[in-house]
């Protein structure tokens, strides 16, 4: 077993931090490490926190950490902030709200830049979750970037998704739009000491009651994170949703779905790599590109011919990948 994996499984925080860097940087060693980690994953419960910029996601995470620590749980936090599309740099500032927990060794907080990913999470969030899961965290809180209406990758990643709103965020039509309003398992109206709280709460409740199907009905929880108000209700709702997910079998289903997606992604990744490796070796791609640019060929038939020439599918049959 790789030394880094051994250290991580023994609870070494530096090893966990190094490992997340390896997956984030797409280092060559990444796949080997993840392979060895995989048997130790699948135990943590994943909670996603999403909402508009400045709605109070980081502060809520901070408050929740306290509640969860009171119950003796070990927690990992992944906080995502946007990477600049121009410079590639980023300001990762979610930690500012959580620094009171910096010295609690049962909490591990990691900030990540999106690095080109557009769905509200970073490219390597899922892999970083696996690292913290194997590291022995009971709960992993995933804070998305400040989102607009349609960055909904979190719902495919988390077991429970919390959508954080603030009072007076538009008229009631906003509550029935597709996208972020559909993915909540729990709604939080944060900054609930501001005017408009009751109206926003009512509008969301009305929207929720328009749904016909049975199953989980998302609660709407009012919080004031700077005064630590309502956090206990949020924590109760999170626990209730987890019980619902487990007892209804939904958790098992979405986790199977997630594994299926991981497998598909890996097959696509390996296939793509092996095709392109051969293409680079055997075919003068530049010449083909020029022919297409001169309109002597079209890209659709050129691609088919290329794959025919490689016989990739016959060769793959006997290989291990």
């Amino acid at each position: 077993m790789h030394q880094l994996v051994t250290d991580l499984l023994n609870g070494n925080r530096r090893a966990a931090a190094r490992m997340i860097s390896h997956v984030e940087n797409d280092d060559l060693i990444k796949r080997e490490l993840l392979k060895e980690l995989y048997p130790h994953t699948g135990k943590a419960y994943l909670i996603g926190i999403t909402g508009a910029p400045g709605s109070g996601k980081s502060s809520l995470v901070d408050c929740l950490l306290q509640e969860m620590r009171n119950d003796g749980l070990k927690i990992g936090v992944i906080a995502v902030d946007p990477t600049s599309p121009f410079s590639g740099g980023a300001i990762l500032g979610d930690r500012i709200r959580m620094q009171d927990h910096a010295l609690d060794h049962n909490i591990f907080i990691r900030s990540m830049g999106t690095r080109g990913s557009l769905g509200g999470l970073s490219r390597s969030t899922r892999e970083a979750i696996q690292v913290l899961d194997a590291f022995g965290k009971d709960i992993i809180l995933i804070e998305t970037v400040g989102v607009g209406q349609s960055e909904v990758d979190i719902v495919k990643t988390a077991d429970t998704t919390v959508v954080v709103l603030t009072p007076a965020g538009g008229d009631s039509v906003q509550t029935i739009k597709a996208g972020i309003m559909e993915i909540a398992d729990i709604f939080v109206i944060n900054k609930a000491d501001l005017p408009g709280t009751e109206r926003t709460t009512t509008e969301i409740n009305v929207m929720l009651d328009m749904k016909k199907e049975g199953g989980w009905r998302p609660p709407v929880v009012q919080t004031v994170s700077v005064q630590n108000k309502g956090i206990n209700y949020l924590w109760e709702s999170l626990q209730e949703h987890r019980i619902y997910m487990q007892e209804s079998g939904t958790l098992e289903n979405i986790r199977l779905e997630r594994v299926k997606r991981e497998l598909t992604d890996q097959v696509e990744f390996l296939l793509k790599n092996s095709v392109w490796n051969q293409v680079k070796e055997e075919i003068k791609l530049d010449r083909l590109v020029e022919e297409i640019a001169r309109r002597e060929k079209d890209p659709y038939s050129a691609a088919s011919e290329l794959l025919d020439k490689l016989n990739i599918f016959e060769q793959k049959a006997g290989e291990d990948g």
């Binding site: 925080r13 530096r14 931090a17 190094r18 997340i20 860097s21 990477t83 740099g89 980023a90 300001i91 990762l92 500032g93 930690r95 500012i96 620094q99 910096a102 010295l103 591990f108 907080i109 990691r110 900030s111 830049g113």
Partner: peptide, 22 residues
């Protein structure tokens, strides 16, 4: 990629943040 911690950090907080954020 800049990780900013905010004000009034103890040396221990700074070192632990450096570790977790690698």
């Amino acid at each position: 990629e800049v990780i900013y911690t905010g004000l009034h950090q103890t040396p221990e907080q700074v070192a632990e943040t450096a570790l977790q954020e690698d």
